[in-house]
Design a protein around this nucleic acid. Structure first.
Length: 858
RNA sequence: GCGAGAGUGGCGGAAUGGCAGACGCGCCGGAUUUAGGAUCCGGUGGGCAACCGUGAGGGUUCAAGUCCCUCCUCUCGCACCA
């Protein structure tokens, strides 16, 4: 009778596997539902974040399966990446061995969680059967001009001996892995993928995602892509031929451009300086800015600083000669690296102009104000009416933008254009444990793609351990020396490997056709199962993975492989798993076992402060191990707690007591059903019209209606569980006589059976065990989700609240169909109501049917 | 600075503009037990009460946690992007 998860969980996991109930055949026999959670990096063991995300996904998968869908619910491994390589150097294990061992371990843990995966579709991105295809994609990208090679200034970590993406550089300019190491800038030849060609489309695609994706994720992507509309304007040089092109979002302020600012790295800066003999001082400034790291240069209180280059150009609108400055706040990578400076209408330019005594010319006057360049203390960046702008004076600044842009276009001095903050995707990594980039460098022929027939380029198995740092592939002599595919002379392989986001950009499609060895993807199968109906994962991937994947999907669409534009129709971004922290004033973060009962540090006796709940991490010593949790309470408890403690999109505060509560609930269900199993299986599947039956069926079907709606429509799993808890509480109060009497036992049998159906996606093992106990031979997880009986759920009496001047004064119990007149008579004659209306006139009444009757009296 | 989200009992959290605090944790009491634990039952926002209570202040409404305005705090994202 005691609930012992260990006795039942393994048994049912085996039963599901043997029956193959989670396998999704290639042929469709019902509407498809593709449910996917972001696949894990095989770091060694699963953590609570995994438990949460896979539980959420599994709940949906199991629910949809019971709803009659053919559910595709796959899992695999995002298996390339730096940690494997670091582990290899630290422990002398090969990254492949380390990775495969971790996969084996984590696979077992996921199986112990009872997640309903189709394991036959599992794959690992580090196997050549997978990555060979992205090598092929890369060859296509080369042909299409989507992939290209460019010398680029990149973030370099000396510790990793590799480049880092901007996102991998911490705010303070350190490496995201080695937070003691300052990232520096290096010039290297790198492979890029032209994601910017799809920038506009990625933005437009948000229209398709609205409603299915959380608004904040879409907003983050919008910021990331950073579209801005404006104009490119050519400023002729004052001395000699040529011009400087600037990008501006404010062409309406062109007449107010009194100088120009250029990024210090801009090649024309030194050119101007040389010509005007200002080389020494300009060089000094440029070098100083170059030495500043990211933080310093982009810091909040960084002064706007610059130096006159010695050059001039001509404002194409006013014809005036204006000086060209190099300024620390101008970014070389954005726009054209040069900015027309309009101090009256741009705060940065304003500060710069005041500092260097440059003229301020007001060309936009706000309504009802008269800006005076002499007395202004800040730039006016808002709208207004154009002044001192020649033929454009008098126009509204919005119209001025259009008019001036058009005017410049007519004269060939500029054009309207759109710029993005998004950069092309740098995919080169100087690492061993990644997918080799399939090109060969030949002295005679240059960069030569590996012919498709020679794919895959497989990683050499022998890893030269002599190199502690840098890219081991560069030392793999036997592997990298190959004849040039073009001329046959000795050549060398590319030693860079792909950014691991390459693998995660299309894995969701490969699950649909995981074993295909003739093609990466079968378009027919893609049409059948793509796109993903529901994707579940963390916010941390809002910008990188989710944008790369959306891009990749579009590229594969253009190659005829992927159907539609968007890979993920709906996205659920689940919150983090947090845990209370403990901090000792002397020893820092403490594990709970490092603190005694009185709250003192076991090492020094100082009082340990209980800190706020933070994301679980090893460094903060506030992690809970899933394996220990499952060992002690079972998978069902882990699942129930994860789903019950918070709505999925919010952060979840881990609490040992909360886990106890989840375990207790399951024990309660278990004991209830086990105790009544005999009565339930012996009961007839019919009932009488008694009041008691009516009440039992009402609770049952209302619960079913609520649980169905909460899971299907609202994704409120916590309230669904609380509804089930209420139903269980109710069933506990049903007495022995009712369980024994045939008339009521039938209704109770229905109640228990439906209860177990509802429980099945949440706590599948308990549901399965109890389903068997009440006399069934089939698997409950394969059954259809029951439909609530609307008539049974209906109430026959309702309670109507009566308010007088907004305060509740009495409650009336009336028949469900009672009309307003009937309520009015009852309400206005109620003594409690009369007490508050005595001597007053009833001015107005409002009736909300079946809920509330409101009296306004004065 | 800009943008998004959030602020409700001791705690996690519930509430299509219609009874604030469902459900759970914790706590209190009872039953059972030699005892403890486990289990089952009951109670539990504050206030003796009228009443008061959803970060603060205003507003709309018969009615506001929910809608509008101002502000405060926290979390996340972006951040010299021209």
């Amino acid at each position: 009778m005691k609930y012992r998860p260990r006795d039942i969980e393994g048994k049912w996991q085996k039963a599901w596997e043997e029956a193959g109930v989670f396998r999704c055949p290639d042929a469709l026999s019902a509407p498809k539902y593709y449910c996917l959670e972001m696949f894990p990096y095989p770091s060694g063991r699963i953590h609570m974040g995994h438990v949460r995300v896979y539980t959420i996904g599994d709940l949906l998968a199991r629910f949809k399966r019971m709803r009659g869908y053919q559910v595709l619910h796959p899992i695999g491994w995002d298996a390339f990446g730096l940690p494997a390589e670091n582990a290899a150097f630290r422990h002398g294990t090969h990254p492949a061995k380390w990775t495969w061992e971790n996969i084996g371990f984590m696979r077992e843990q996921l199986k112990q969680m009872g997640i309903s995966y189709d394991w036959e579709r599992e794959f690992s991105t580090c196997s050549p059967e997978y990555y060979r295809w992205e090598q092929l994609f890369f060859l296509w990208m080369l042909e299409d001009g989507i992939a290209y090679r460019k010398r680029a200034t990149l973030n370099w970590c000396d510790e990793c001996q590799t480049v880092l993406a901007n996102e991998q550089v911490n705010r303070d300019g350190t490496c995201f892995i080695h937070d003691q190491t300052q990232v520096t800038q290096r010039e290297l030849d790198q492979w890029f993928v032209a994601i910017t060609k799809y920038a506009e489309e990625l933005l437009a695609g948000h229209g398709e995602l609205a409603g299915g994706w959380p608004e904040n994720i879409l907003e983050m992507q919008r910021n990331w892509i950073g579209r801005s509309e404006g104009a490119e304007i050519r400023f002729p040089l004052a001395e000699g031929a040529g011009d400087i092109t600037v990008f501006t979002t404010r062409p309406d302020t062109l007449f107010g451009a009194t100088f120009m600012s250029m990024a210090p790295e801009h090649p024309m800066v030194m050119e101007f300086a040389r010509k005007s003999g200002r080389e020494v001082e300009v060089r000094e400034f440029v070098d100083r800015v170059a030495r500043q790291d990211r933080v310093e240069r982009t810091g909040e209180d960084m002064a706007r600083e610059g130096i006159f280059t010695g050059g001039h150009c001509v404002n194409p609108a006013t014809g005036e000669k204006i000086p060209v400055y190099a300024a620390n706040f101008v970014l070389y990578e954005y726009g054209t690296g040069a900015v027309m400076a309009v101090p009256a209408h741009d705060q940065r330019d304003f500060e710069f102009a005041r500092r260097y005594g440059l003229p301020v010319v007001v060309v936009v006057q706000p309504e009802g104000e008269a800006l005076d360049p002499e007395t202004m203390t800040a730039a006016h960046e808002g709208a207004g009416r154009l002044v001192r702008s020649g033929e454009f004076s008098g126009l509204d600044s919005g119209d001025g933008k259009v008019a001036i842009t058009r005017h410049l276009e007519g004269k060939g001095q500029g054009r309207g254009t759109v710029r993005y903050r998004l950069r092309d995707w740098g995919v080169s990594r100087q690492r061993y444990w990644g997918c080799p980039i399939p090109v060969i460098h030949c002295e005679a022929c240059g960069v030569v793609p590996v012919p498709a027939k020679d794919l895959p380029v497989v990683l050499p198995e022998d890893l030269p351990y002599t190199r502690e740092r840098g890219n081991p592939l560069a030392g793999a002599e036997g592997w990298l020396r190959v004849p040039c595919p073009s001329c046959g002379k000795p050549a060398r392989r590319e030693t860079d490997t792909f950014d691991t986001f390459f693998e995660s950009s299309w894995y969701f499609l490969r699950y649909i056709d995981p074993k295909n060895d003739r093609a990466p993807l079968d378009p027919e199968k893609m049409r059948r199962f793509a796109p993903v109906d529901q994707y579940v994962g963390g916010v941390e991937h809002a910008c990188m993975h989710l944008i790369y994947a959306r891009f990749f999907h579009r590229y594969l669409r253009d190659k005829g492989l992927a159907p539609g534009n968007e890979p993920f129709l709906r996205l659920l971004s689940q919150g983090m798993v947090c845990m209370q922290t403990l901090e000792c004033p002397k020893h820092g973060w403490r594990y709970p076992e490092e603190v005694d009962e009185s709250g003192a540090c076991r090492q020094c006796g100082e009082t340990v402060s209980v800190g706020r709940s933070m994301k679980m991490s090893k460094s903060k010593r506030n992690v809970v191990e899933p394996s220990a949790l499952i060992e002690r309470y079972g998978a069902d408890t882990a699942r129930i707690f994860s789903l019950f403690a918070a709505p999925p999109e919010k952060d979840l505060d881990w609490s040992e007591q909360g886990v106890e509560g989840a375990f207790r609930f399951l024990g309660r269900v278990y004991r209830l059903v086990a105790l009544r199993a005999g009565a339930v299986s012996a009961a007839p599947r019919q009932w009488d019209g008694s009041e008691e039956v009516r009440r039992i069926r009402q609770v049952t079907h209302r619960t079913l209606r609520k649980v169905t709606g909460d899971v299907e429509e609202r994704f409120h799993f916590n309230t669904a569980i609380s509804a089930v808890m209420e139903m269980v509480n109710f069933l506990y109060l049903v007495d022995d006589a009712a369980w024994g009497a045939p008339a009521t036992a039938g209704a109770l049998r229905e109640a228990v059976e439906l209860l177990l159906h509802m429980l099945s996606p949440f706590a599948p093992h308990v549901a399965e065990e109890l389903w068997q106990r009440v006399g069934n031979a089939d698997l409950i997880c394969t059954r259809r989700w029951p439909e609530a009986d609307v008539a049974a759920a209906r109430e026959d009496t309702v309670e109507v609240v009566v308010q007088v001047n907004g305060k509740v004064r009495t409650r009336l119990t009336v028949a469900a169909g009672a009309g307003e007149d009937e309520i009015r008579v009852l309400a206005t004659s109620d003594p409690r109501v009369l007490e508050h209306t005595a001597g007053k006139e009833i001015r107005k009444t409002v009736y909300v049917p079946g809920k509330l009757f409101s009296i306004v009296a004065a």
